[in-house]
């Protein structure tokens, strides 16, 4: 199947978010694709606050079954979380478990005023009651098909993996 152009979706997503951001809004990218996306959105939206990044490996609900990811990175939120408007950014929304883990981690940094979710692609297959606030495209994929963001130089593209 043919996948939409990620660079185009990025512009669509930025247009959706733009009217809703204020001077205290901060983007929080989820490793790895979400961080690339957050960096691009940050530039397009000209946000004042720096970008945060989360690696939710320590909060995943399948830790006991699958073990720790080999390349777990440090999370970094270079701003006060307490009372802030935050937008979680991820490339693909699937089961909703990553978002659940990210919310848990966020609240260990403080109590944000409001948390929203921006994704490039909603591919369906939710296992938790999670919905995106901003979403550039929806895809109807078979359950075992995976789609993820790739970065080549400074160009983003969507790729199918697995089957």
């Amino acid at each position: 199947m043919s996948l939409p152009d990620a660079e185009h979706l990025l512009v669509v997503l930025a247009d959706q978010i733009r009217p809703r951001v204020g001077s205290d809004t901060a983007l929080v990218g989820l490793h790895t694709g979400g961080v690339w996306l957050a960096q691009r959105l940050h530039a397009l939206l000209g946000l004042a606050q720096p970008i945060g990044s989360l690696d939710v490996s320590f909060y995943r609900d399948d830790y006991a079954k699958r073990g720790l990811a080999r390349d777990t990175r440090s999370s970094a939120l270079p701003f006060e979380v307490e009372g802030r408007h935050l937008i979680l950014v991820d490339d693909v929304l699937h089961t909703g478990r990553t978002v659940r883990a990210a919310l848990n981690e966020l609240f260990d940094y403080g109590r944000p005023l409001r948390v929203e979710l921006a994704v490039l692609v909603d591919r369906g297959g939710r296992e938790l009651p999670v919905a995106p606030t901003y979403c550039a495209a929806t895809l109807d994929l078979p359950p075992r098909q995976r789609v993820k963001l790739a970065q080549d130089g400074n160009t983003l593209s969507l790729r199918l993996t697995g089957n």
Partner: peptide
């Protein structure tokens, strides 16, 4: 692998809630 895994744990000590659910 142990040394790599330890690295992100150093950041936890600087947070509001110094706990992970593992």
């Amino acid at each position: 692998r142990i040394l790599d895994t330890a690295e992100p744990f150093t950041v936890v000590a600087e947070r509001e809630v110094k706990k992970l659910p593992l």
